[in-house]
Structures are given as structure tokens and as C-alpha cells.
Write a protein that binds this DNA or RNA. Structure first.
Length: 304
DNA sequence: TAGCAGGAAAATC
DNA sequence: GATTTTCCTGCT
């Protein structure tokens, strides 16, 4: 079905889809093509609206509005995070960038694969898992593969997953698929908790039991922010860590600051990550996740 | 708690 | 063409 959505609040389709939140969108000409759990959709930004063509009736205006969170007013959110000149520049540079509301399982699995990889590589791994295990679907005469359900990957051979180029991530993905498939990990339950509770629930670090192998604090924060509605989550990857060290040194512990300088390129320990995340969340407030997303994009263009 | 391996592709030199 | 980096986590 085809439809047009009017935009009442700032939105940049390009910045949003290029900001590393999602891995199943592809830019072809003036359209963005996305493979989502319900089917395939293409979207194009126009003057004061976005035009959409989707493969199923269930992907309608209400769905797209909810997916891109277009009912929420962006200005007050941005106003709340612009506490200094760095964030003001980042917001100005990527004005209209929004957080997307993703499906829990696909988000968790995708960011599990994201360790030690760059975005093109992550897209390749996800795409390979989909074409190997996902259900085919057709759109405009072309074949696409949906992201496989957790049950499907729970019964996959680790060797088959490895063939998708996942390397050491293969056994992790299978374990996580089992956990989600069995209901041991439930996105809906996590959504009801506050950030702190949700984060530790996802990590299952209590009693030293690691249910979700391959999911550390950073991946957990990505999942909470992108799929569980925790706008105050603040994932810290290498880019955000550098940007914090460069532009927000007072939020960073001196010893960690030294560690993060370009020469050392050190990695954060679990405790250092927790401390830095808490400091950033305290500073930026309830919409820290938006601050993180703008900072990520800003850090990447500044480095080039 | 610090150090290291893990795997492969992209970015950089 | 070789080296470094890449939206990190688990194990020792």
C-alpha cells in the first residue's frame, strides 16, 4: 500500500537511517528500502512529508508513525539535551535525527553481532543470517529475506551460523536465540522496568549467572535504547567514549581520560563503563539516549 | 583486575 | 600490500 505522512515535527530520514541504529535499510536512489518483521517498505522524504510504499496492509501510516516515533515532538527533547556548545553543534549538524523503535529480538541479535565489527560488516552478517534462515518475501518483483524468528536460530547448527561469517559470535547468537525462544528473556517484561532494573535484568549478572553470553553493558544499553523505550540509556562505544574524553573531560575519571587518549586506545572495564555511563546520564538527563546518538554522529564526522 | 583472544572486513597507511 | 581499526565480551 502507498501513503503519505505529513510531518509536524523535525525529521531527517537520512540522518536517522545512517546513524547506526538499524542494519536492514538500504539507500537506492531517492528511496530507502527496509526489511522489517512485517514485510518490506520503501520510504522517501519530501518537503513536509514522507512517502511510503509497503508490501502489506499492516504496514500503514500508524505503523510508520510509531516506528519512526513521529508522534513525539523532537524540539523539547533536543532542547533538554542542549546543555553546552558541543551538543548544540551536534544537534545543529544532524538536526532531525530521531531514535527508531525497533523489534526486540532482531535488535538484540543484531547488536550481539556488532562486537569488533564496523557497520558494513554488521550489515553483511545480518543479511547473511537472514538469507540463510529467514523467510523469503517479495516486493516490487524482488526477493527479500525477513529476519529469522528466535525459534529458527535456536535450532540452527552453530556451524551453519559460522558459515554466515559470524566467527566467534556464532555460539553466542545461538544461546541468545534459545534464551529468547524459551521466554527466559522477554522484551515486554524488560520494557516495564526502569532503566537500572532493565539493564541488570538484561545482563543477568546477579548471582554470577550469565544467561546471555555475548551481551555486555554496551550491547544491553543499545537494546534498551533502540527497542525497549529507555530514552535515558547511554551506550558508550569507542566513538562516544572519545567524544566524551575530548569534549566532556569533567564527566570522565582522570585515569580513564588518560586511557582514552588516542595513543593508548584503551578499553573500558565494566566498572569504568558503568561510572562513565552514570555520569553522562546524570548530565544529559531523561533523553540521554538522544544526546548519545547525536554525539556518535558528530564524533564520526569530526574524525574524518 | 589486567591482559588477551577472538575472526574478518573495512579503513588507513 | 601490510597494518590498524572496527558501535566488545568472556576467559584466565
Amino acid at each position: 500500500m502507498e501513503f503519505v505522512l505529513g510531518l509536524e515535527s523535525p525529521f531527517s530520514l537520512d540522518y536517522t537511517l545512517e546513524s547506526g541504529q538499524v542494519f536492514r535499510w538500504e539507500n537506492r536512489g531517492e528511496w530507502w528500502y527496509g526489511v522489517l518483521p512485517m514485510g518490506v517498505i520503501k520510504v522517501k522524504q519530501e518537503a513536509d512529508s514522507i512517502r511510503c510504499v509497503s508490501s502489506s496492509e499492516s504496514m500503514d501510516g500508524a505503523f510508520v508513525r510509531s516506528y519512526f516515533r513521529l508522534d513525539e515532538q523532537l524540539e523539547p527533547i533536543l532542547a533538554s539535551i542542549m546543555k553546552d556548545s558541543t551538543m548544540a553543534s551536534a544537534v545543529q549538524r544532524f538536526y532531525g535525527l530521531r531514535l527508531i523503535r525497533q523489534e526486540f529480538w532482531e535488535c538484540l541479535a543484531s547488536f550481539l553481532l556488532a562486537t569488533n565489527a564496523n557497520i558494513p560488516r554488521i550489515k553483511k552478517m545480518v543479511s547473511s543470517v537472514c538469507s540463510t534462515f529467514g523467510d523469503p518475501t517479495e516486493f516490487e518483483g524482488l526477493k527479500y529475506f525477513r529476519f529469522p524468528p528466535p525459534e529458527r536460530l535456536a535450532e540452527a547448527q552453530v556451524a551453519e551460523l559460522r558459515e554466515c561469517g559470524l566467527g566467534y559470535r556464532a555460539p553466542f547468537l545461538r544461546r541468545v536465540a534459545e534464551s529468547v525462544s524459551s521466554g527466559a528473556v522477554d522484551g515486554g517484561e524488560i520494557e516495564l522496568k526502569n532503566y537500572e532494573q532493565a539493564h541488570s535484568a538484561l545482563l543477568k549478572v546477579f548471582s554470577g549467572e550469565k544467561l546471555l553470553l555475548g551481551v555486555g553493558p554496551k550491547v544491553a544499553d543499545c537494546v534498551l535504547l533502540y527497542s525497549c523505550g529507555k530514552d535515558d540509556a547511554f551506550p558508550i562505544d569507542v566513538w562516544v567514549a572519545r567524544e566524551l574524553a575530548d569534549s566532556y573531560p569533567r564527566l570522565v575519571d582522570p585515569s580513564v581520560l588518560k586511557k582514552l587518549s588516542r595513543e593508548h586506545g584503551g578499553k573500558l572495564t565494566y566498572r569504568e563503563y558503568a561510572d562513565l555511563s552514570r555520569a553522562a546520564r546524570g548530565y544529559f538527563g531523561p533523553y540521554s539516549g538522544y544526546a548519545q546518538q547525536y554525539l556518535y554522529m558528530y564524533g564520526r564526522v569530526r574524525d574524518q
